[in-house]
Write a protein that binds this DNA or RNA. Structure first.
Lengths: 230, 230
DNA sequence: CCAATTCGAGAGCAGTGCTCTTGACAGGTC
DNA sequence: GACCTGTCAAGAGCACTGCTCTCGAATTGG
């Protein structure tokens, strides 16, 4: 079959429509997505969906993968838009972009970073795009190291097993990265994820009305921890 | 009816059995708990469950509340078991207890700190027990302040809105607590939650085999941030 | 033009939460 | 003991779910 045949084009559009409807339902109904509901939205029989996605999990997987890509794109684009030497600016831009994306797409964020669906196991395709946001943060630290703006923290407190583990990670993901700095970069990523999750999952209550400023301050604390110059 | 009548006792036992069976299913099936499966386990009709819990959400709420209490108990007990003046020891004990509880009860932890169930809204009863772990951490910082072991960080970087918000929180939860210190304590709590979630939800992959040591080091970073003396 | 492929719709299966009705049992009262 | 009253478990049934299968219609490539 020709790649551009009428059937192929209609099929591609149909897939897009299904995904769009599914995303719409995701926003209101959460992870328990109903295939029949999206079929109703599209005015088709529920069984017809199975012509395009072999199962509900498969549709979810596609949405998850695209969400990872979208988040990774957003973070990397925000980082790229800042002067390479402005480490702190890049740090803030990246973190804010992640939060902004999460606030704009809460259901998809919950799908990525919420509790895992019981029977569901993420395919290997997700690990690479999932690693892009933390890699962006670590890249900022690396650049600072390269330009001398950033001095690596002492690794004295690092227990030997952690040092070895982190050395392995650095070897495969960020060659030349000092382990102590890598650990602090990962702390920043953990903090970013925790902050967004707390805000999104309603754990922060209404106690802190100025969420943007609070977020910025907490992110600044981690920027200091990593050693980004002010 | 007498509170200790035979009926009341049998009923209480039945409720306990239902909760136990539900917890068992929770561990394998996650948040999508099946009432019918629980009923099957207990050898009773599904409709009979409704004599004890008005709905599935109500059963879930009960489990959530008890999980909050269990986690709070675990953290506070760990903190209380350490010499009051050993701030760092208390910090480590509290954080490790939270992680240990989460690893021992992953399904319940996911229920508490994973993505919120779509239609479900947590009742007000949960906010007090939910606040116990972070309050324990903040209490450690307060004690350090009282004994002079800990000097409050400067509040210079804090934007005014955040300072005001945090002052309100401090006024109602931790009177006399400097806002900058409160912010760092909350950062510690956020980091703790993020660390546990990453480990539990499989985001950390097999990249860091020595998870205990990694956890300890990241917790130590936050202890330093709060200013706990070594 | 025809065979092959693709597609949508419908029926149907097993499962779910939940409601309502029915019949059985225990508690206390006369 | 007889009698009511409140409680309980069970079953049928409703509307919903994911998913499979079959059947007729439409489109494609030869």
């Amino acid at each position: 079959m020709a790649a551009n045949s009428l059937r192929a084009r209609v099929r591609a559009e149909m897939i897009d429509e299904i995904k769009a409807a599914a995303r719409r339902h995701l926003a209101t109904d959460g992870a328990n997505l109903s295939l029949r509901a999206v079929a109703r939205d599209l005015g088709m029989a529920s069984s017809a969906i199975y012509r395009y996605f072999p199962s509900r999990d498969d549709l979810l997987t596609t949405l998850i993968l695209e969400a990872y890509v979208a988040l990774g794109d957003a973070v990397e684009a925000a980082d790229a838009a800042v002067d390479r030497d402005d480490l702190r600016g890049r740090w803030f831009a990246s973190c804010r972009a992640a939060r902004a994306w999460a606030l704009a797409n809460p259901a998809e964020y919950a799908l990525l970073y919420g509790s895992p669906v019981p029977g569901y196991t993420a395919p290997d395709d997700t690990v690479e795009p999932a690693a892009r946001p933390p890699m962006t943060l670590i890249g900022i630290a690396r650049d600072g190291l390269a330009t001398g703006q950033l001095t690596p923290p002492p690794a004295d407190d690092l227990p030997q097993p952690v040092r070895d583990d982190l050395a392995d990670v650095a070897a495969s993901l960020a060659p030349g990265m000092p382990v102590a700095l890598l650990a602090r970069g990962m702390a920043g990523w953990t903090q970013l994820f925790g902050l967004i999750s707390f805000e999104l999952f309603g754990r922060i209550k209404g106690a802190l009305p100025h969420r943007d400023d609070y977020f910025d301050h907490q992110i600044a604390l981690m920027a200091d921890l990593v050693g980004l110059p002010r």
